[in-house]
Nucleic acid binder design. Structure first.
Lengths: 165, 165
DNA sequence: TTTTTTTGGTTTAATAATGAAACCAATATA
DNA sequence: TATATTGGTTTCATTATTAAACCAAAAAAA
């Protein structure tokens, strides 16, 4: 990666990990059950040195766990940690968006379904503590405890803009 | 972008648009109400030539709409289209993941809250047609109508692996 | 047991992308 | 009328990516 973001915003931080052309595909393959270097490489067509780099940083970041398999040799497996498995949500969100706005209805390469009923799942939503879906319009982003001055200003500013309207 | 993915999977397709260090930050700023070139540039610290490139492709992709503002001059605004606004879901999913696994509880720079109650929102979920949240374990990815042989094989293979267990 | 193949990389060299700075024309603002 | 701002483009040095060659250890095949 060519420049690292040092904003405290979690999006910027996440981009330091995922802000490239390959990492999400590696994660995707992991969800499909891929765990070996050569399998990742074949399935996504990434150059070996890049895959090597990416996997190292993903291991560093605690997203993959690297294990020795096969006695005490040079064979390894890469598995998602809980932190990595939690990427299921953003990954699915991207998939659903792409299905709707890029592939289009009837052209989706991969669908999400409910296991029991087999029904297709097409929407994702924030849910309240009591388990109710929240409409996008009912969601507000606010500065959190880790905000810096820039973020505080930004939300202050956003509030003022709304007031004026 | 250095290589475009030509897999039919929506994740790969989406990476052709978002698979870089900056694009999600541009989208983020748009959600915060930013619409002008110079504002994007200041807020995220991106080089002007890169911002120019990125905005062009986002306009091409139908994610931003570019409008003339200020009589008939060289002043423009960039606003999210419905396709762009729908990126709210993946963006929030990434934010929540980052808040939980990078920032950590009590260090979040930006929080999502329910507008009426002010309560913090920390989880996102697939919802069924009837509006009920679906547990991750109850979700299954399957090949869709737009799948190619590679994807068909992959899911066939995943099914066989499960059978063996 | 020997040979061949697979695995999981590293190294190298060419090409492409990025980043920072300089530049610029049209328009707003003072 | 003079100055500043906007929304870029151009240039050039630095960094990242790609493809290919190479390699040692281990596994599989002969």
């Amino acid at each position: 990666m060519t420049q690292t973001h040092n904003q405290p915003c979690a999006i910027a931080q996440a981009l330091n990990i995922f802000g490239d052309n390959w990492t999400w595909l590696i994660i995707r393959e992991a969800f499909y059950g891929v765990s070996r270097f050569s399998e990742f490489q074949r399935n996504i067509g990434i150059a070996k040195n890049l895959l090597s780099n990416r996997l190292s940083t993903l291991v560093e970041q605690g997203i993959f766990e690297k294990k020795n398999v096969g006695e005490n040799g040079t064979r390894y497996s890469y598995h998602l940690t809980p932190k990595g498995a939690a990427l299921r949500t953003p990954l699915f969100a991207i998939l659903l968006w792409g299905n709707e706005y890029i592939s289009g209805d009837g052209n989706e390469a991969v669908l999400l379904t409910e296991r029991n009923t087999g029904r297709q799942l097409t929407t994702m939503s924030l849910v309240s503590e009591s388990g109710e879906p929240i409409e996008p319009n009912d969601v507000r982003a606010i500065a959190g405890p880790g905000a810096n001055q820039e973020i505080l200003d930004k939300f202050e500013n956003a509030r003022n803009l709304k007031k004026q309207k």
